[in-house]
């Protein structure tokens, strides 16, 4: 019996580690979602293995809760998945971060400047209308 437990434990661990590798590599959010779903199900299997070895029945509610809730994460991410730009999955280097920050601050300063100069003219236009972003049917 001990050999069986060891073999099962090793198989489950290796499977979970491979899924985590895919979670790191996966080019999109959805790949990572699937990989983490597999990790959760492997956790259920591992808890069940422990309960089988020790013959404990009080860990069974953990299995029920995990199986019900474990898929909510992937469904939520899939439901709200937005289109990711191509370079999003990469880890940016320090120079790239600095360059992007500088660009962003430039764009903000420019937007602030145009907003200040255009405010006096734009104020009357909004007077009779609704708020920005209001949905008109």
């Amino acid at each position: 019996m001990t050999a069986v437990i060891w073999v099962c434990g090793v198989l489950l661990t290796v499977g979970a580690v491979l899924a985590v590798i895919r979670a790191e590599k996966g080019p999109s959010m959805l790949d990572r979602t699937i990989a983490l779903d597999i990790v959760v199900t492997t956790m259920i299997a591992a808890v069940a293995l422990y309960a089988a070895v020790e013959r404990r029945t009080d860990v069974v509610p953990i299995l029920v809760v995990l199986s019900l809730v474990g898929f909510v994460g992937s469904v939520t991410i899939a439901r709200f998945a937005a289109v990711e730009p191509e370079g999003e999955g990469r880890v940016r280097t320090r120079e790239e971060i600095a360059a992007q920050e500088a660009e962003r601050m430039n764009a903000e300063d420019q937007a602030e400047g145009t907003r200040r100069s255009g405010r006096r003219e734009g104020y009357d236009e909004h007077h009779g209308g609704g708020a920005e972003g209001e949905v008109r049917e």
């Binding site: 069986v4 073999v7 099962c8 434990g9 198989l11 489950l12 290796v14 499977g15 979970a16 580690v17 491979l18 899924a19 590798i21 895919r22 590599k25 999109s28 959805l30 790949d31 699937i34 990989a35 597999i38 199900t41 492997t42 299997a45 293995l49 089988a52």
Partner: peptide, 26 residues
């Protein structure tokens, strides 16, 4: 049964790493 189940979970992990496409990984 425990061995079979652990083997299939291991195969699922290998599959999600090896398959070429998002749909295949599902």
């Amino acid at each position: 049964c425990l061995l079979g189940g652990a083997f299939l979970a291991f195969a699922a992990g290998v599959g999600v790493l090896r398959f070429p496409d998002l749909l295949a990984r599902m």
